[in-house]
Nucleic acid binder design. Structure first.
Lengths: 116, 116
DNA sequence: GCGTTAGTACGACGTCTAACGTACTACGAA
DNA sequence: TTCGTAGTACGTTAGACGTCGTACTAACGC
């Protein structure tokens, strides 16, 4: 009965990733946070570990935007769906961009925490 | 009769510039193009030199988004309004970010031109 | 003053977006 | 097989966005 352990998940090919799309995906604070956390973890993370202050359906939405823009890769693992950054693709297309954004993200967090 | 040569132009202070706002400003192809051109020019440029494929009012809109997010600085010079990147502020807040985006922008242009 | 040039303000329009709730499916465990 | 967990699909809502046109203002040069 078609036990598709791998339900299909659409990912853009490397050449279809667009800078404007990536920047748009990163321009939302919630998604920036997700990317920031993903960058610090070696393992692919389940969506559930983020505990975002929004509903489940909104969480799904944000992960989809990240995936469809080419920022993250997602795969089903059992009942969970795990996500990880597409570092290799992003670094090949836009060297230094992801690191620049992640560093900026860390610096801003520190700056805003220092001046509340 | 109040010949304010300097009509007031709102710019965010350095500390009010937000990463998400900057990324959002850069996530539009038209604005990315503007920033790309500004980065290659030493002099501040008038809005008119860009010759964007949109109406004057839309052009005004895009420059305003860039200014209000802290990406560019604008000033009146005679009848023109000249714009330049806020490199110093952006590099202080998010070192490497602007360069990363600009380089990514150049690389993508070259890549897309090669495969039409 | 008059016209030209450069940009603004405002209102309108259709589209996109972020958020929600509810109802559903897929997998693993009891 | 039944239940719980994790996430999807769908429909909706309110607001933001990109675009336009028209009417306006400010500075310059004649």
């Amino acid at each position: 009965m078609t036990t598709r352990t791998t339900r299909s998940l659409e990912h853009p090919a490397r050449d279809d990733i667009r800078l404007a799309g990536v920047l748009h995906a990163l321009s939302d604070p919630m998604r920036l946070h997700i990317v920031h956390v993903l960058a610090e973890e070696a393992e692919a993370q389940s969506c559930a570990v983020f505990d975002l202050p929004v509903s489940k359906s909104t969480t799904t939405h944000h992960f989809r935007v990240l995936r469809e823009s080419g920022v993250i890769h997602q795969a089903y693992r059992g009942t969970a769906k795990v996500s990880c950054l597409r570092r290799e693709d992003l670094d090949a297309l836009f060297p230094g961009l992801l690191d620049g954004v992640l560093r900026a993200c860390s610096l801003e967090s520190a700056r805003l925490a220092g001046r509340p």
